[in-house]
Design a protein around this nucleic acid. Structure first.
Lengths: 166, 166
DNA sequence: CGCTTCTTTCAGAAATTTGTGAAGTTAAGG
DNA sequence: CCTTAACTTCACAAATTTCTGAAAGAAGCG
């Protein structure tokens, strides 16, 4: 490991992390470009980058950045800021926001639950298959409830780790 | 909704559920064919199907089934059984096993943590980016711990819902 | 042992996804 | 208003992924 220095960022080290972490996100099902953009933002010091900066860091066209950012914003994983002076836009990860968003896979769970309910209904609650689906559904409903509580505990735990992070 | 009857399964209703649920899984990042196979197994009465049955239900070649099943087995989402008599193989979802497996996205978390640690290390723990990555890392470590506890609570909760399901 | 039945592997065709360049749109600043 | 700097959209080319058919590989059964 190189000696990390707060003064100078080694672009290569940054890039290694960005591409490596993005690759993991991709393997978990995220699209490549959003993953790379997100990783780049995570690895930036300010937590925010312009479209141009992202394009240069990742060696991609403005169009690609635009598409990726649109996706990330929809998922609430980044927010857009207009800097007052210019029509230049900055994309930002809020330290917390982002894993809150990751938890917003709630939405995914909700859709799964919907599909399962339809299945139970049409296959019949009393059939073996219906019972299996019911149990699966019950599991997701349970998880839904637990996640909220877990995030609450995380916030508390976070305090003890990092002090009051506004 | 048709009147579900324990005696006769409506193939169309089954198919509707299978394709619908699979679509949701796909949208969440799962590959199409594994998702369809998995959904088909979930919707089967016995919880197990042969390659031929899966092929017919899903209208795909044996090769496609083979590939999907290999993937699902690696993810511990199905298990393979050889029925003693024949060289025919059956693929099964254990009612519990499957969401336990879904929780095995632990493995995913672990890899994320690894990548994040590398990032903290090479960018420097004292840099702003390093601190952001550290916090993210701490979050995942926290979640890791919570998940085990949550599954414990689920098992207990499950008892209260379904009684003792061996 | 060889036949038969099932599964797996593999090369390639088809479909889908992904990223680009170029034109289009919006809004700041003169 | 007009110019200009940015972002976005769109059609298309390239790369990747996905599924198939065919051939090869196991394993029961006669």
């Amino acid at each position: 490991m190189a000696e990390p220095n707060a003064e100078e960022r080694d672009p290569e080290a940054v890039s290694r992390f960005v591409e490596g972490f993005a690759a993991q996100l991709v393997e978990a099902g995220m699209q490549r470009m959003p993953a790379r953009v997100f990783a780049a933002l995570l690895a930036s010091d300010s937590g925010a980058m312009t479209s141009a900066e992202l394009g240069e860091q990742l060696q991609v066209s403005p169009a690609a950045v635009s598409g990726a950012v649109r996706y990330l914003a929809q998922q609430h994983m980044v927010s857009r800021e207009r800097e007052p002076g210019s029509r230049r836009e900055r994309y930002r990860v809020h330290s917390n926001q982002w894993y809150e968003a990751l938890t917003n896979r709630d939405a995914v769970l909700k859709r799964w639950e919907l599909a399962l309910r339809a299945g139970v209904d049409s296959l019949g609650p009393a059939t073996p298959a219906g019972r299996r689906l019911s149990e699966t559904l019950a599991f997701f409903e349970f998880v839904d409830g637990e996640i909220a509580a877990m995030m609450e505990r995380w916030r508390a735990h976070r305090e003890t780790l990092f002090g009051d992070g506004t």
